[in-house]
């Protein structure tokens, strides 16, 4: 229960950072929805946006002339809810996220799964081998600080560009996030 609260408070901080523009180097996320349901899964956080920044005058012109304009999204889920996190749950989350990519015509989606306790080795292996370019996956433990990302470009951008790495590190050291 306490650990679930830790995950929820980390999701709040993660969302706050994104609202303050932490993802801006990769995507301009402009709308944030909590408890968003896709098929069988309720995601704790869904953020949607575009790869082209809005900005004003010069930055808007620069974005318009240089950056591609793709619809993208971020999905974040507390994986510890409803018992131990299994490979079946991992597969179902990626399947739901991929179905969402297709349904909403998105270019790609970040999928962030937050857990407590050590990450299951099968899950880590699955994430690290994950290669589909439409889905960047990260799984992280708020108690041990362990983070694992898919090796595609979208996945590797999660700890750095979204600020998840620092948040997880602080949470795992018991600092307020």
């Amino acid at each position: 229960m306490v650990q679930n609260t830790a995950v929820e408070s980390l999701i709040d901080s993660f969302e706050r950072g994104l609202i303050n523009g932490r993802a801006r180097w990769v995507a301009d996320l402009s709308e944030f929805i909590r408890r968003f349901r896709i098929r069988e899964t309720t995601f704790d956080l869904y953020a949607k946006g575009r790869t082209r920044n809005r900005g004003m005058l010069i930055s808007r012109f620069f974005a318009w002339s240089v950056l591609p304009d793709y619809n993208v999204a971020l999905l974040c889920v507390n994986g510890g809810r409803g018992g131990a996190f299994s490979m079946d749950r991992m597969r179902s989350l990626t399947a739901d996220a991929l179905s969402f990519v297709e349904r909403d015509g998105l270019q790609w989606v970040w999928l962030v799964i937050l857990l407590t306790g050590p990450l299951p080795s099968a899950v880590v292996a699955f994430v690290e081998r994950y290669e589909r370019k439409e889905l960047g996956v990260a799984v992280a433990s708020v108690t041990t600080g362990q983070t694992s990302t898919s090796s595609n470009k979208i996945g590797t951008s999660i700890p750095g560009h979204l600020g998840l790495g620092k948040l997880i590190e602080r949470a795992s050291h018991g600092e307020a996030v």
Partner: peptide, 13 residues
């Protein structure tokens, strides 16, 4: 039915 936080073009929420 649903609520969201939305950012305008100046980043105001």
């Amino acid at each position: 039915k649903m609520v969201s936080i939305i950012l305008d073009q100046f980043g105001r929420a």
